[in-house]
Amino acid sequence: MLLIRRAATGYRDGQLSLPAGHLDGGEDAVTGLVRELREELGIEADPHSCQLALLMHSAPERRP
């Protein structure tokens, strides 16, 4: 399991988190995973070695 410590994002900075991101239009989950790992962490992953194990969808956070 890969965890990152959030920093300089303005959202839950200092907390441990799984790498996360958003899909670009029409992108499948594995393609999005590989892209986010490359963009956010500088990690190159082989899409053929990736297996989807968990998907979380959340609504936008709204401030009162």
Rank of each mutant, 00 (worst) to 15 (best):
L23N: 09
S17P: 03
L52A: 10
P64V: 07
L33R: 06
P60V: 00
R12E: 06
A29D: 13
L33F: 07
G42P: 05
H48Q: 15
G21N: 07
P60C: 09
E40S: 13
L41R: 00
L52N: 03
G42V: 04
L54G: 08
G14W: 03
E27M: 07
E44Y: 04
D24R: 14
G14S: 02
G14K: 02
R12H: 08
P47C: 09
S17R: 14
R62L: 13
E36S: 12
G14E: 12
A7K: 09
L18E: 03
S17A: 14
H57E: 15
S17E: 11
V34I: 09
L3T: 07
L2N: 06
D24F: 06
M1I: 00
R38M: 04
H48I: 10
G26N: 09
Y11R: 15
D24K: 15
G26P: 10
G14A: 06
R63W: 13
R63S: 14
G10A: 12
R6S: 02
I4W: 05
L2R: 02
A45T: 03
S49T: 09
L16H: 07
L54I: 09
D24H: 15
R35M: 04
R12F: 05
A8W: 06
P19K: 00
R12Y: 05
P19I: 00
G25C: 13
L2T: 01
T9E: 10
C50Q: 12
A8Q: 09
R5N: 04
D46E: 12
G21V: 04
R62S: 06
G32S: 02
Y11I: 03
G42R: 11
H48A: 15
L55V: 14
D13S: 11
D46C: 02
L23V: 07
G10C: 06
R62K: 14
E40A: 12
P19D: 04
C50W: 00
H48V: 08
E40T: 05
P60G: 11
P64M: 08
R5V: 07
R63T: 14
P19C: 00
Y11W: 06
P47K: 08
I4R: 01
P60K: 04
G25T: 11
A29Q: 15
A8P: 00
Q51W: 09
P64L: 13
G21P: 01
L54C: 13
L18H: 12
I4H: 01
S58G: 09
G32M: 06
L54P: 02
R38E: 09
R5G: 02
L33D: 04
A45H: 10
A20K: 05
D13K: 07
G32L: 10
C50P: 07
D28N: 10
